[in-house]
Design a protein around this nucleic acid. Sequence first.
DNA 1: ACTATTTTTTTCGAGACTTAAATAAAATAG
DNA 2: CTATTTTATTTAAGTCTCGAAAAAAATAGT
Lengths: 406, 406
Amino acid sequence: MPVLVRTDDVRRQNTRSIIQVLRRHGCVSRTEIVEYTGLSPATVSTITSGLISEGLLLSRSELSQSQDTVNRRGRPRITLSLNPQVGCIVVMVLSINKLTAWLQDYSGEILAKADDHFESRQASLADFEHYLLRMVTRLMSQLTTNPIPLRFISIGVQGVVDAGGQTMLWSPMTQLLDLPLGELLHRAFNVPVWVANDCNMAAEALHWQDPARFGDDFAAILLGSGIGMGLVLKGRRFIGRQSSAAEFGHMVHASDEGALCRCGQYGCVEAYVGDYAIWRRVSGADEQSLPVDEIDPTAMIDLARRAHENEGIERAAYREAGRALGKALRSLFALIDPITIAFIGGGVRAFDLMEPEIRNALRHNGNMLEASEVSFYCYEDSQELIHLGCAMTTLQRLDRTMGVGG
Amino acid sequence: MPVLVRTDDVRRQNTRSIIQVLRRHGCVSRTEIVEYTGLSPATVSTITSGLISEGLLLSRSELSQSQDTVNRRGRPRITLSLNPQVGCIVVMVLSINKLTAWLQDYSGEILAKADDHFESRQASLADFEHYLLRMVTRLMSQLTTNPIPLRFISIGVQGVVDAGGQTMLWSPMTQLLDLPLGELLHRAFNVPVWVANDCNMAAEALHWQDPARFGDDFAAILLGSGIGMGLVLKGRRFIGRQSSAAEFGHMVHASDEGALCRCGQYGCVEAYVGDYAIWRRVSGADEQSLPVDEIDPTAMIDLARRAHENEGIERAAYREAGRALGKALRSLFALIDPITIAFIGGGVRAFDLMEPEIRNALRHNGNMLEASEVSFYCYEDSQELIHLGCAMTTLQRLDRTMGVGG
DNA sequence: ACTATTTTTTTCGAGACTTAAATAAAATAG
DNA sequence: CTATTTTATTTAAGTCTCGAAAAAAATAGT
């Protein structure tokens, strides 16, 4: 399978690196681009002047000589930046009963935010359509003074998505299967649409925010009502052949017929670690009883507090969850070598109670590589990360659809 | 991380596709190369004539117009082929007590084979060095009539290898750790050396032999004394960050303290599926007892025969092994989507007994994708596959070291 | 105020690469 | 022995990157 055949593929690739530098650093001069990319000044000059004449880049020689560059000798640097007017994107995050959205311009600036509550479990496909379209329309209506064309819509969803990023195959937020969210929005607004798994987007955000910690190999594990994972291996977001994959929560914990998982199977990790699993255990219900549909967030906070206060069923439940996590991580690390893990979401409130059990399970691992010293980081707010990650990847995809990226 | 691309990367890449076509099809004309690669005739002509003048390719216009092309109208095709004289490679496969080796020329032709038995468990590092060097020397000595320079040495080993392909980190064949096999052979023969995991090489061979079945996503699972896996995802051999990884055999099967694995942990899949585990179970020993070092191959054949003949402890052992495999596959498929699996090695003799249990465990899987219909294929002879895979990848690496490949 | 220096950006020429089109080569068919 | 057919090579044109030289635009110093 030949990867690189044409000479203009080279240009596309280099153009993409340059845009990526601009997106990360905001305002950058050509010399700085030379430093970051390793391209020659000549090439950078050619490519950037092309982008400027296409309208993708703005060149601001006059204004905003930022403080550190001022008063230096020599010809002053001309800072370049992405042209916000190129277009805007709508980034939505869809989870149980909740839809939040950002409107951002091409430079990444957030122009507006909005959110919406609706009963996702009762919603029909038409309802989903209604809420999604209304949200896009509402955000776009805020641009009357300065109209920027809508260029891309993306949705980060809690659930399993097809590998092509068009359909939500399964989600805890609804009983419906195979929701064609991509097609639906595409028909309405006639722009490319991309549906992504929320955990993958959280991982993307971590990589963006803190590439030193979350570089080429790491995982973001979402501890919420469900258990999800976004996996980055060798710098690439891991996606299955058919689905968004990396369903860490549905690796097997219990030997035979274990606790009942929301997915209908028995023994999944999620059936021990998810909010509903902790709740079920604490409430004294049988582990094979049906999980409750919804738990009041404050009740989970309260539960975690009680677990911290004294020994008891709550703390035992988190210990058990820790064992399940540890065992699944041991299996995961056998497959892919130990990597840094970020735990994200409400579940991290009791992470200190789970961590000893996790580390205990990892004392040795099958790969003969020491896994007990793996770094764990916790982030309680998942929503913000998902939004950010979704936005960044969407802008990259936008570049590609405009024939710029590789 | 900007991937810097130069214009000559294009040439390298295209050169590589051409060589790959030649390696797969043996004798190919330029027009056929055009068809296979999609490159223009002009490009193919330029690149091939370059390779011919470098001596890498042979152009045989006169001899061997093969039967089907003969008697066609028009200018006859000039078949090109790789020049065997370019160099030769030594491909060794190292497993418990056994070392086998092939000597092959640049076109892939096997010039000689040899094998050697030695007590790997008793062997010191110096012993390993001795056997490996002697094997290379012995094979090379057969080239006296027609000397071809040695260009590359590779070893497929049963065990965990570092990601760089130089060191054998751990292996069941020895108590020693971190054997620098690569460095050792490199010092002796001053050619590049590459150490690879045997399962990865078996997977490579399957992909080579039968790309229709084993295309971009599949796994080769070795059922032998140990349990290993070679994983191919999106057409790329999966390698960990530090090690050859994909230690499927050390995913966790048993809940708490389960059977003792050869790696020192408890509950690994291998501790239920490996030859020694079956043997231990059948012999009535405690599952936490130390596994026996070595089992007579004919004894395992006999054991499998007894399992087939009638119900009994032997059949129960294989059923248990099937459950362990099934559970681990369920976890694996949760992570990476269901994929085709090739089972390789002596363990497949009783695969029919294990399969129902495996399929049973896969009735549903965490990824909401139907996994029970996944295709399984069995190959009893692992040695041949490992050799073949190792040879093919080695020739590709050789191209790269000669500045040809990408 | 004017020149020298410094730093950044652009321009120019060279070297590589691919491709389409034209040309040359080497067979068979009649 | 010529016409036809198929294959390979050459030529010309269009990209791409890069190094070096040139141009641009500021500050430093006298």
